[in-house]
Write a protein that binds this DNA or RNA. Structure first.
Ligand SMILES: Nc1ncnc2c1ncn2[C@@H]1O[C@H](COP(=O)(O)OP(=O)(O)OP(=O)(O)O)[C@@H](O)[C@H]1O
Length: 794
DNA sequence: ACAACTTTCTATAAA
DNA sequence: AGAAAGTTGT
């Protein structure tokens, strides 16, 4: 439909990237410069103009959602051929590879994928057998160590050889047992998917050759966050044709903690002779002020490739830094701004994202959103798929799919209660050991002859035949049919319904949703299968799992927001110990990564950013005083407005006895000196006041109007969340919004009844913005910002 | 074996 | 504060 103008949507540099299809290409550029778009169009161009069959192209993305959206966009550009493209995350691609070719290296095609909880459970077993002090060496720490070993492609022997201390010694021992246990369970953990895929390609030249023949063009997005195993995989696959195009930004490397190595993108050019390096400098996403702030933050880091971005989008509004009393008030502020803007400024809920450093911080935000009736969607954290009942159901499915999976078996053998307790399970384990059979087979043996009591024998045998029958029947059933059969035959639903508790009724509903999920899967998958469904369950990213971002406010971690964009972004919890996180504060490298993370957060925004920090916060149930994040200090003062809330009873004191206020607040904050907060607040109020004197200064309240960059195309990795046109606003709304504009902290005002005064704070929590004004004659009063008797004093 | 109660631990980030 | 783990009584 686009004809010859396919590449018209690209600038010159992007077009160069899209047209250079042979040999190594590195697209290296800052945030929002159109890297992903260049990649997408490059694929379309290859198929459409260069006649390359889509099945010869492999595109690796960071989430499956990104892969699907890329496919969809390419489908729009070139038609249904795009469906034959290979696109996905490293993990899903490896999983598919191993299902197909895994037997070559001894992996049965019905392997199951172990998630973190399964891994930890397995390590616990390995640790207990190995008689290791599990106090000093927690399963979690060992899991981390094993995982980082795997990311470097170290097998247990390599790990033992490279050990550096007593901890590594233990890890090496556990690692070896752990791998043994995985084999016995016919399971792979997340990291194994990569490790085994590399092993396959390295050791089976025929398989490698077949894949190289098929995958002649390899493209990788977000290359700054790949680990060594992934690097090796890409290298192997692209070794023959050497048509490898990678895209990334060293400033956005935020996954070092899980083994990603930013050096791999920095050395790409050296690694691949004749690499064409393409740098993109025009930013299409954000306002100049957002870019200024982002650059001011990231330039502090050393050892980075300097990239200066420019934009035609205009300056935009000043970014806002809000000081909240505590986390609740912070959340109320966010919800208040959203509610008011959606009401008054013609924005939509989907235009907003609230970003935070840690998943646990979503709680307050959620309740604030609920309170104001704002639709929201939490990405990641404790989601649908993490609920106990879903994991139970998944465990049933895994066991039915792979009868060797003892971890899943243990999980559900007594769910619902079947009178098979811990004691019985450990007897079964012993039996399995002594007879050299799987735990599942041990159930059958135990039912025939063993020292179990009659009731237990029957229960175990009954469980065995139930699973056995499901396993056999599954072959002829649809995925949703299997799911339903499990729920019925296991008695799981019955038990929940019989309990009569409200929570359990909710659980029944949740399980019903998984049935729906299975039906949807059947409809969308090319060849639906239980294995495919389980793979999806295991490998979907948090972002993939989230639904309906198109009509709600998105709540997610900064990590999850990578690659996305939103018109308006909130970044909450800008405090020392939170962002940067205290566990990163002791290490320069980790601190630099925290800074990059903040850079990523800022650069998600198209037209407005609100940052907030709380003076106090409840952590582990007890109150803590918080210091504003060091990153806030790096923001250019001329591009930000600071606000704080005078409703806190302490604030007015600042105008009288400031020292007392400081003392009082120091106590409030748990003994931590917050003088710095006050100093900064004063400075910024003064700066803001000074700025407001100048006529051309944009208003503090984002109007959703003039400075808004043009709406994006159907929208990046965020389908329905595109920006609204400004023309849609009614004159009445415009007038209303306009009258609110100039009242920021420090503004001098005059009131018909109260006389002259100065704005002490702006309250955005309510539906209508209110200001607290210190009147010279009448003292401090709180008034609606658009009150007709209130005027700005020139 | 299991429900109800008490104590301890927890919250980086994620496929 | 809330979840997980541990403990007690039936
Ligand atoms: N040539 C262009 N003309 C107009 N808009 C563009 C152009 N290229 C990209 N854009 C828009 O700019 C925004 C950012 O593009 P894109 O997501 O591709 O950037 P990116 O470099 O991948 O960003 P990030 O580094 O954050 O992942 C998108 O909304 C995209 O539609």
């Amino acid at each position: 439909m686009i004809g010859l103008s396919l590449l018209d949507d690209l600038n010159d540099r992007q077009r160069e990237a899209a047209e250079t299809i042979d040999g190594p290409v590195l697209i290296f550029a800052g945030a929002g410069s159109g890297k992903t778009r260049a990649l997408t169009y490059r694929i379309a161009h290859m198929v459409r103009e260069k006649g390359i069959a889509p099945e010869h192209i492999l595109a690796v993305t960071f989430t499956n959602k990104a892969a699907n959206e890329m496919k969809e966009r390419i489908t729009r550009l070139i038609g249904d051929d795009a469906r034959r493209l290979w696109a996905g995350t490293f993990h899903s691609i490896c999983s598919r590879l191993l299902r197909r070719y895994g037997e070559e290296i001894g992996i049965a095609p019905n392997f199951v994928i172990y998630d973190e909880a399964d891994q930890t459970a397995l390590i616990k077993q390995a640790v207990s057998i190995a008689d290791i002090d599990s106090q000093a060496y927690t399963p979690t720490r060992i899991r981390w160590a094993i995982s980082s070993g795997k990311n470097e492609l170290l097998d247990p022997q390599d790990y033992a050889r490279a050990r550096k201390g007593p901890f590594d010694e233990i890890v090496a021992r556990v690692y070896s047992r752990y791998q043994q246990a995985l084999r016995e369970n016919n399971a792979l953990d997340f990291d194994d998917l990569l490790v085994k895929a590399v092993e396959l390609l390295r050791s089976r030249p025929k398989v490698l050759a077949a894949l190289q023949e098929r995958l002649r063009y390899v493209l990788v997005d977000e290359y700054q966050d790949i680990n060594y195993a992934q690097y090796e995989l890409v290298k192997l696959l692209s070794a023959r044709e050497r048509n490898i195009c990678v895209v990334g930004d060293d400033d956005q490397s935020i996954y070092g903690w899980r083994g990603a190595n930013v050096g791999l993108i920095l050395s790409f050019q050296a690694d691949n002779p004749n690499t064409r390096v393409i740098k993109l400098e025009q930013n299409y996403r954000s306002t100049q002020k957002i870019l200024d702030c982002a650059h001011a933050v990231i330039r502090v880091n050393e050892d980075r490739a300097e990239k200066r971005l420019w934009t035609e989008n205009g300056a935009g509004d000043n970014l806002v830094v809000y000081e909240a009393v505590n986390e609740e008030e912070e959340a109320a502020y966010v919800a208040g701004v959203v509610a008011r803007q959606v009401r008054n400024s013609g924005t939509r809920y989907a235009d907003y994202a609230v970003l935070y450093r840690a998943n646990a911080m979503s709680r307050n935000l959620e309740s604030a959103m609920r309170e104001k009736g704002i639709p929201y969607e939490v990405v990641g954290g404790m989601s649908f798929y993490d609920r106990g009942e879903i994991k139970d159901l998944a465990a049933y499915l895994k066991l039915i799919y792979n009868l060797d999976d003892s971890i899943s078996l243990r999980r559900i053998i007594n769910k619902p209660a079947r009178n098979i307790g811990e004691g019985t399970v450990s007897r079964l384990t012993q039996l399995a050991h002594s007879e050299g059979v799987t735990l599942f087979e041990a159930c059958r043996l135990a039912g025939e002859e063993s020292d179990l009591r009659k009731a237990q024998k029957e229960a175990v045998l009954h469980f065995y035949s139930m699973i056995r029958r499901l396993h056999e029947d599954a072959a002829a059933m649809s995925v949703s049919g299997i799911v339903k059969a499990v729920l019925e035959r296991s008695g799981y639903t019955d038990a929940l319904q019989a309990s009569g508790k409200a929570d359990d009724a909710d659980r029944v509903d949740t399980l019903g949703e998984l049935v729906t999920d299975a039906v949807k899967y059947e409809q969308s998958a090319d060849e639906p299968s239980l294995g495919g469904f389980l793979e999806r369950l295991a490998l979907l990213s948090d972002l993939d799992k989230a639904e309906d971002l198109g009509s709600s406010v998105s709540l997610m971690t900064v990590h999850a927001s990578k690659g996305l964009e939103f018109p308006i972004v909130f970044i909450v919890g800008m405090e020392e110990g939170i962002f940067p996180h205290e566990r990163s504060m002791g290490d320069q490298f980790e601190l630099a990564e925290e800074r990059r993370l903040f850079y990523v957060a800022l650069t998600r925004a198209q037209r407005m950013v609100y940052m907030s920090h709380a003076r106090g916060r409840t952590i582990y149930g007890s109150p803590h005083g918080m210091i504003p994040s060091r990153f806030l200090k790096d923001l250019p003062p001329e591009s930000i407005d600071c606000k704080f809330d005078a409703d806190s009873p302490l604030m007015p004191r600042m105008f009288g006895d400031e020292e007392a206020a400081v003392r009082e607040r120091t106590v409030l904050a748990g003994g931590i000196d917050i003088t710095d907060v006050l100093r900064r607040a004063r400075e910024n109020s003064a700066a803001a006041a000074a700025q407001r004197q100048e006529p051309q200064t944009p208003p503090a309240q984002p109007s959703g109007g003039e400075t808004v960059p043009e709406p994006t195309e159907a929208g990046k990795r965020k389908p329905a969340g595109a920006t609204r046109k400004k023309a849609a606003r009614s004159p009445a709304k415009q007038k209303k919004a306009a009258s609110v504009q100039p009242l920021g902290t420090g503004t001098k005002v005059v009131h018909e009844d109260f006389g002259e005064g100065i704005v002490v704070s702006v309250d955005e929590k309510g539906d209508e913005p209110a200001v607290t004004v210190a009147f010279v004659a009448k003292g401090i009063k709180k008034i609606l910002a658009n009150h007709p008797k209130l005027k700005v004093r020139r």
